[in-house]
Simulated scan of single mutants.
Amino acid sequence: MKTRKLTFLSTFIFVLFMGGLNAQNGSSQAYWVHEDVVKPSMIGQYESICKELTDNMKKYNIQEFNVIVSNTADNRYLWVSPISGMADIEKPLFKTLSEKMGAEKMDDLFNRMDKCYDIEHNYIIHLDKELSYMPSGITQTPEGQDYRKFHYYHYTPSNRAEVKKKVEAIKTLFENKGSKLEYRVYRSGFGTRGAFYMVAIAAKDAADYSGKISANNESMGEEWQKTYTDFFSSLKKYEAFEGGMRPDMGYAPK
């Protein structure tokens, strides 16, 4: 997580100004994602170091940092932090932690962490509340449902408007049918690899997820199959990843 050190801020300030990022409004919330692609042989060590970092932030009640963490079956760890405005971006994330635990100790922690991966990514995604379907209330962390299935629907810039209309049609159908399957929709932003919608579905575990999908397909009937097939035919590429939330690695200040 080298880019989460004190120097990450200058990297993004200019880009966000130039991109005209509207970090948060009534229908959208922006998140900065730091993704570590961890070496399989280093997973245990990586998680241990990350928990050491979390423990230190809890110990000193660091106020500048707020993050949820998930990891996928292909060994990617995603650190997701909300951006509420430019004032948040200007805050040095680990300045206080460095002062509290000592710069030398903190640098040693991050240096050990950096050895656990060769690839890291940084990008922005936007939670689209208008396209998401969560009648019980939008939350990234439904209680008791740490399992995740991440669906990536890639499209080309030329058919952006068409794909959006079909995503809207899916939500309308879910509302009309009173579906019990809830999902959140994220839009790709600055730094992502191509344009996509990412749909995140929460469940207790893989079996619970499978049961939810089966029940939804049955209750929604042929109209759902037709609507989804029409949407799918407009895509450039589709990917799906299993994963889970890691509350033991995330952090929120008291």
Rank of each mutant, 00 (worst) to 15 (best):
G20I: 01
L21G: 00
N22W: 01
N22D: 14
N22K: 14
A23S: 10
Q24M: 10
G26N: 13
G26K: 08
S27G: 10
Q29V: 09
A30I: 03
A30S: 15
H34E: 13
H34N: 15
E35A: 10
E35T: 12
V37S: 05
V37N: 06
K39D: 09
P40H: 02
S41K: 11
M42S: 15
M42Y: 11
I43H: 06
Q45C: 05
Y46M: 04
S48D: 08
I49F: 14
K51N: 09
D55A: 15
N56A: 15
Q63G: 03
E64F: 01
F65W: 14
N66R: 08
V67T: 12
V69M: 03
T72Y: 02
T72N: 01
T72M: 04
A73L: 03
R76P: 00
R76A: 10
Y77W: 14
Y77P: 00
Y77A: 04
Y77Q: 04
L78H: 12
W79P: 00
V80F: 01
S81R: 05
S81G: 08
P82E: 02
I83C: 02
I83W: 03
G85L: 02
G85H: 05
G85W: 06
A87H: 07
A87G: 02
A87S: 13
D88S: 09
D88L: 02
I89E: 00
I89T: 05
I89W: 03
E90D: 06
L93Y: 07
